[in-house]
Design a protein around this nucleic acid. Structure first.
Length: 801
RNA sequence: GCCGGCGUGGCGGAAUAGGCAGACGCAAGGGACUUAAAAUCCCUCGGUGGCAACAUCGUACCGGUUCAAGUCCGGUCGCCGGCACCA
């Protein structure tokens, strides 16, 4: 009896779709479960096996939850705006809309072939008018609330993509998309004031169940530091130079100060600075450097000493020179620092190069060699002398600074505001109008969606202008406020926008009056479990949490945090153990696997191949192992016997396996869950028959992993409806334990014998039985017994000398 | 540089809370069935010694705690991920 997976899988996929078993029900009395997977970018290359692994995890959980009686929302959609589609359109002349529709159709059919239990009635496409209307709506709400603003700044600009990039998109000085070198350019840029939510984003982490390393990465990304702001007077002016430091305890060790070359105070006092020409020359030099170069030359410090511009240390009145150097950034703190070379390595390097004094204020290091950043007794520090640790000296100095009004406690974040616009066609138009009289004016809500106009040429303009800027009918408009002539904003939103709130739209995907109905939101939110890639746990997760917290603050959603729980799956590497890539030619196409082995095998393999959270290489041979597993399940029909309860030989195996599989699915240990099922299968074949009660339980347990073959067997044998809507099997804790167990007898910690004992044996009896063993008796004969231990259900250990 | 994580057979990986290291799968070797092959089934499968029972070593490396260490502690090396002149 050969298993025809092709026909069977197609048959059940159609049955599931027709019956609507996987459609989530609104207005249900049942307990809800909202499982979310990261929606894919529908690239032309089609699905990747990584997608299959990412979705299979929560797929199994979702199917189990339905069988446990939950009303499950397990949706899918498409994050379809983005550069690859646009670049493809530029190359081929095919409209991005057409490219996107084709790719979505391709992804949809591929996903359906794997048999995922998504609710296909709730598909969301970020590029669809009914969707991006609400993306624009959220933007306008942010604009109204002062969280979206425009500012002129130096931006990371990719000359190849002709696009402005956020710091996140240009890490290491390379464009995230095309990997060319980033240059700095002055431009008008839209920002979202995410920094205003920094503390809330940090605080919120306390209440959610994310993997610890995910929380940690978010914390590092936000980068909160506590310290102090201190005001240094500038000699012969009324000006104070404000600095931020985490080490106010070292104030008496300050021997110079450094300002960022772009610091605005420099221009204000350029007449006082007798060598301002040197400042300008240095600035020009810095502007040439990319952010990457700036961070590469860590050891070799450069800078210019300002003449005629001198600061005064507020704690001791000492005059201290001021330098400019590019190791101080305008974007962090106040753009100026107090330098304590004795206790900061960067300041130390700078001082050594420029021959500046190094004054030790904390004992414990050797400042003739390097800066000492550890703890120790304070010296050369007036009222701080004698303090023995950082914590108390900081507390003392803060008290003094506040009393004298020269400084205060302060907090800083590494996270910067989110650069939000792109000079690209295939994105959501930013719904803002620039009016000569009124300035920036929001497009009225009634005019949303502000539709993306048709263009003929998707290439960006010469100086990185958006393709939309070339469409006069789009650009020229009337001001919604005064009715006068105005011009539309022509930049579009970044790809992150649509993915920052998509999970809300699944709850009410066709609502034209609000982004989602509040009653429905109250029922479904928060997301019970969100799984996705490790590469998204900083940016996407922070951005979407930020949007959600904002929506909560304006009363659009009912809870503060969107995700109650977040996990991440590991990569699937190529068979050569290296990350899959087209250029390496080690990409596995999930379609081919489905063609050759079937969807059940593919699903089982991606979960069985290793620890779900770790990276693991693809192995064609191991796929075959899962094929055998599926075939052996099918062949159980050949050894089927009657029986409406577990046979005595297999009863405890079944109870144990149900327990193991049920628990492992909840903790991402799919590999050991499948291993347990294989072990049970081996036990069944060893016995030589399976009865109907046993088969039913086994089919239910395997069903979330391999739904097609199990449904088919169930129909053939029982013909009593779908497993998908059958109760998940239960186990009896009492029946998981065997009456007698094998334990180990050790002498001095080394295994010397094994014996069978009743499970509930007393320690003394177990030890007595052990000593009665012939081999053990001869081993301990003539020795003194020092200690005897019994570890319940495990071992007896006799320590003898 | 800083912050995380990891290091177990030929391979992917198991091993509650310190208690038989190597579950499960793959590969390999041997056998059965077959004219033959595929498929399937059975056996072996960390190293060394031994016909065997068994002994002995073994979880990156060095040391420690413990009756008992893959697991805990200290140090070293290596790999992976994140951040990176963050004051």
């Amino acid at each position: 009896m050969n298993y025809d997976f092709k026909q069977t899988e197609q048959k059940w996929q159609e049955k599931w779709e027709q019956s609507g078993v996987f459609e989530a029900k609104d207005n249900s009395d049942k307990k809800k479960f909202y499982a979310l997977v990261e929606f894919p970018y529908p690239s032309g290359a089609g699905m990747h096996v990584g997608h299959i692994k990412a979705y299979s995890g929560l797929e199994v959980v979702s199917r189990k939850r339905r069988m446990e009686g939950y009303n499950v929302l397990f949706p899918i959609g498409f994050d379809a705006y983005g550069l690859p589609t646009e670049n493809y359109a530029i190359k081929t002349g095919i409209h991005p809309r057409q490219v996107t529709d084709n790719n979505i159709a391709k992804f949809t059919s591929q996903l359906k072939r794997v048999g995922f239990s998504f609710d296909w009635k709730r598909v969301v496409d970020t590029t669809e008018e009914g969707y991006y209307k609400w993306t624009q709506w959220i933007f306008l709400k942010m604009f109204e609330n002062g969280l979206a603003f425009r500012d002129k700044t130096l931006v990371n600009y990719c000359p190849s993509c002709k696009v402005v990039l956020s710091n996140e998109d240009s890490q290491g000085g390379k464009c995230d998309i095309c990997h060319s070198d980033i240059v700095q350019k002055s431009k008008d840029v839209w920002y979202l004031r995410i920094t205003e939510y920094a503390d809330k984003l940090l605080e919120g982490l306390k209440d959610v169940d994310y993997l610890p390393n995910i929380k940690l990465q978010q914390e590092n990304w936000i980068g909160k530091s506590t310290g102090a702001f201190v005001n240094f007077k500038v000699k012969n002016t009324e000006e104070t130079l404000k600095i931020y430091t985490t080490r106010p305890d070292t104030l008496f060790g300050v021997t110079f100060m450094v300002m960022a070359p772009e610091h605005p105070m420099l221009d204000k006092y350029k007449d006082m600075i007798s060598n301002f020409n040197e400042v300008e020359a240095y600035r020009a030099e810095c502007a040439k450097k990319t952010e990457f170069e700036r961070t590469q030359l860590v050891k070799d410090k450069t800078g210019v000493k300002l003449s005629g511009f001198v600061a005064v240390n507020p704690v001791n009145g000492k005059e201290i020179p001021i330098f400019i150097s590019d190791y101080v950034m305008m974007g962090y703190g106040t753009g100026a620092i107090m330098a304590v070379p004795a206790h900061d390595q960067r300041d130390y390097d700078f001082a050594k190069k420029f021959g500046i004094d190094i004054i030790e204020v904390i004992k414990g290091g050797d400042i003739s060699v390097e800066a000492y950043t550890g703890d120790g007794e304070m010296v050369n520090s007036d009222y701080l002398n004698g303090y023995k640790d950082k914590k108390s000296s900081i507390a003392r100095v803060l008290e003094e600074l506040e009393k004298q009004g020269i400084g205060e406690k302060g907090v800083q974040y590494k996270m910067k505001d989110w650069a939000f616009n792109r000079q690209r066609y295939w994105g959501e138009p930013i719904p803002i109008v620039h009016c000569e009289k009124c300035g920036m004016v929001a497009v009225p809500y009634s005019e949303l969606p502000l539709k993306l106009p048709e263009v003929e040429n998707f290439e960006p303009g010469q100086d990185g202008e958006s393709p939309l800027a070339k469409i006069d009918e789009f650009v020229n408009c009337t001001c919604p406020k005064c009715g006068g002539k105005a011009k539309r904003e022509t930049d579009t939103m970044p790809q992150w926008a649509g993915s920052s709130w998509y999970f809300l739209r699944y709850i009410d995907p066709h609502n034209d009056n609000e982004l989602a109905n509040m009653e429905k939101l109250k029922y479904w939110m928060p997301i019970d479990w969100y799984n996705g890639g490790m590469e998204h746990v900083t940016r996407h997760l922070i951005y979407s949490r930020f949007w959600h917290k904002f929506l909560y603050d304006i009363g659009a959603v009912p809870c503060e945090e969107p995700y109650a729980k977040r996990t991440a799956q590991g990569l699937i590497l190529g068979p050569d153990g290296v990350k899959m890539s087209k250029s390496r030619g080690n990409v596995i196409d999930p379609n081919e696997v489905v063609d050759v082995y079937g969807a059940d095998v593919l699903r089982t393999y991606v979960l069985f191949m290793g620890d779900y959270e770790q990276a693991a290489p693809w192995s064609e041979n191991s796929v075959k192992g899962c094929k055998r597993f599926i075939d052996r399940i099918w062949n159980l029909q050949e050894i089927l016997a009657e029986g409406d309860e577990y046979s005595p030989e297999l009863s405890s195996s079944f109870h144990k396996t149900i327990k193991k599989v049920s628990e492992d699915i909840e903790t991402l240990k799919y590999n050991t869950a499948i291993a347990a099922l294989m072990t049970l299968l081996n036990a069944i074949y060893a016995k030589g028959s399976i009865n109907k009660a046993e088969l039913k339980s086994l089919l239910l347990l395997v069903n979330p992993f391999a739904p097609h073959v199990t449904e088919e067997i169930n129909e053939a044998v029982f013909a009593d409806g779908m497993l998908a809507s059958t109760q998940w099997p239960t186990y009896d804790e009492a029946k998981c334990v065997d009456e007698t167990i094998e334990i180990v007898v050790q002498i001095n910690g080394k295994v010397r014998a094994k014996m069978n004992v009743p499970a509930e044996v007393e320690a003394a009896d177990a030890i007595a039985m052990a000593k009665a063993d012939e081999k053990i008796a001869s081993e301990i004969a003539g020795k003194t017994i020092v200690k005897e231990l019994y570890v319940k259900g495990r071992l007896v250990n006799i320590v003898a000398r």
